[in-house]
Nucleic acid binder design. Structure first.
Lengths: 175, 175
DNA sequence: GCCTGCTAGGTGAACTATCGCCTATCGGCC
DNA sequence: GGCCGATAGGCGATAGTTCACCTAGCAGGC
């Protein structure tokens, strides 16, 4: 399961609770993976079962106790294995293209509306990616770790750009 | 479920068996959606339950009888609804970026290997998309239906191109 | 006093998807 | 004679994911 590896990856940076993990997913991982809260908690339990992480309860004043999850040595090894092992290529899944594929049924103006809606979405995404990119610390990019994290964002930016170009072309030539 | 709509889309072109559907998925839909055989059969059963399709058993000589599925009027209406309704944007899922994000742990040469493997995959994909594109009948592209089907392939080509450009940049600047 | 939102950690049910396996017949290859 | 692959249609188990809901305390606004 990929989610388990991503969680291990975050735990390798610092110990976290399920709640912390959810926040990290929503902020920095969201552009290439999203995680449901329920799934995070269940996966954390799994990791503990498998000995890849341990829990430590840390009481707090005025707040519920934190269930801090720490990565174990076995966990680090599993992460390393995942990083270097072969990744089976996963099939593409683009519901939007499913529509386009069958939208020969529609009137021309309806197709143009579909494309316009897609364009709006892509532009929104582009704005949010660029905003995230602008917030990154220039100094952090010199370090390989920071560079690679930023590269995942650049990946999103590159693909949104390709999407917009594709939209230009499809709209421009639609019979 | 998107699979149900895609199957309806194919059934709207002509009546098919589960087996036929699987072949269509593997040939023309594969670049944006893949379908498991088991899932196709189950979804067909669902469509029949919902009155969106009907089955007709067509005996054959020397071969098992075909369970031909035909789209119903309700099915065509459901397809139309899906084509024009709003599509909730689905979150990105890129296991490869998950690795890149955490591969600051790795040695520089290991990161380069990851990127090189990705490049090989992308180039393979590019070749196969281009081969499919070259096979398309020029005349069919003048028709809106054919044009849009080809556009889904162009989408794949555009994105593979973006991927390769991104790889160039990441490899070129990796600290 | 009530409501909302943040902190924290869940549970249960349902749905979706994938994997391996199974039944048959026919034709062709070695 | 035995095995493989194409045709056709499925079953069962498991894995992965999502949705709705729940407990609790505290802070701040109306």
């Amino acid at each position: 399961m990929i989610l388990a590896r991503l969680i291990l990856g975050l735990l390798s940076l610092s110990p976290m609770t399920g709640y912390d993990l959810k926040k990290h997913f929503d902020s920095s991982i969201n552009h290439f993976w999203n995680a449901d809260k329920a799934q995070i908690y269940r996966t954390l339990a799994q990791l503990v079962d498998q000995g890849l992480a341990t829990v430590r309860t840390v009481p707090q004043e005025n707040y519920p106790a934190r269930q801090e999850h720490h990565i174990t040595e076995a966990g680090r090894a599993a992460l390393q294995d995942w990083l270097t092992g072969t990744l089976d290529r996963q099939p593409a899944r683009e519901p939007f293209l499913g529509r386009i594929f069958f939208s020969g049924e529609l009137e021309r103006h309806e197709v143009l509306e579909l494309l316009a809606a897609r364009r709006t979405e892509a532009e929104d995404l582009q704005r949010s990616y660029r905003a995230l990119r602008a917030e990154l610390d220039e100094a952090a990019l010199a370090d390989r770790r920071g560079y690679l994290m930023a590269a995942t964002l650049d990946h999103g930016i590159a693909h949104v750009g390709a999407e917009l170009n594709w939209l230009d072309s499809v709209e421009g030539n639609l019979p």
